[in-house]
Design a protein around this nucleic acid. Structure first.
Length: 192
DNA sequence: GCGACGATGGGCT
DNA sequence: GCCCATCGTCGCA
């Protein structure tokens, strides 16, 4: 199964976010591959985007976003949850795609263990849940998803038909001014 | 099924 | 010192 190349990520972050739907995210955890189909994404685009962390400019935290595309940008949210992004566009321009949901397809038993006590339905259906299920944390910040020996990468899968894609405003940014609050850069894959 | 809310810590003004 | 790109639980219907 071919992996997505750096060229895939070196494009408009909104396009990358939409086209990541249905692709297969793989996390190699103790030599065991855990995988899920990407069901929800969100684009954060440049210093002008007031919902993007790069609105504050280049800092220690946002440094990875300013680097080359195809790397993981991971940060701690609300002091509790690790959130996983993939850097997009060109080096020097800060943009990333937040992975907000997965449908588990491989290593489900391990994911259940990582998410003890949770029903299968909620193993990875949120940005903080999926990092827990895949054991993704700051140790992978800056990791290159296009490297030969990557422990985190994305495999090419069939693209879903446009009729199965929903575009909506991004989640959890109610304090952000327009137009950034309402721009439809959240993408969801309809199941069924 | 839904709304309120507490947990919890780093980043930035 | 305030602000979060969230999750799980509780109370109530």
């Amino acid at each position: 199964m071919p992996r997505l190349s750096r060229k895939f990520f070196a494009r408009d972050a909104v396009v990358v976010a939409r086209e990541l739907l249905g692709q297969r995210l793989v996390r190699v955890c103790n030599a065991q591959p855990l995988a899920g189909l990407i069901t929800e994404t969100e684009a954060y685009v440049g210093e002008d985007d007031l919902a993007c962390h790069a609105r504050a400019g280049r800092t220690a935290r946002t440094e990875v976003m300013y680097g080359p595309p195809g790397h993981a940008y991971i940060y701690l949210n609300y002091g509790l949850h690790w959130l996983l992004n993939i850097v997009a566009e060109r080096a020097g321009y800060p943009a990333a795609v937040l992975i907000r949901g997965l449908a588990p397809v491989r290593g489900i038993e391990v994911m259940r263990r990582h998410r003890r006590g949770r029903p299968d339905r909620s193993l990875a259906d949120g940005p903080g849940k999926l990092t827990q299920a895949l054991s993704v944390n700051v140790a992978l910040n800056g990791a290159d998803l296009c490297a030969r020996a990557a422990e985190l990468y994305i495999e090419r899968a069939a693209s879903p038909p446009p009729t199965r894609i929903i575009a909506a405003p991004r989640v959890g940014i109610d304090g952000v001014p327009e137009p950034w609050r309402s721009v439809r850069w959240n993408f969801k894959l309809l199941t069924g």
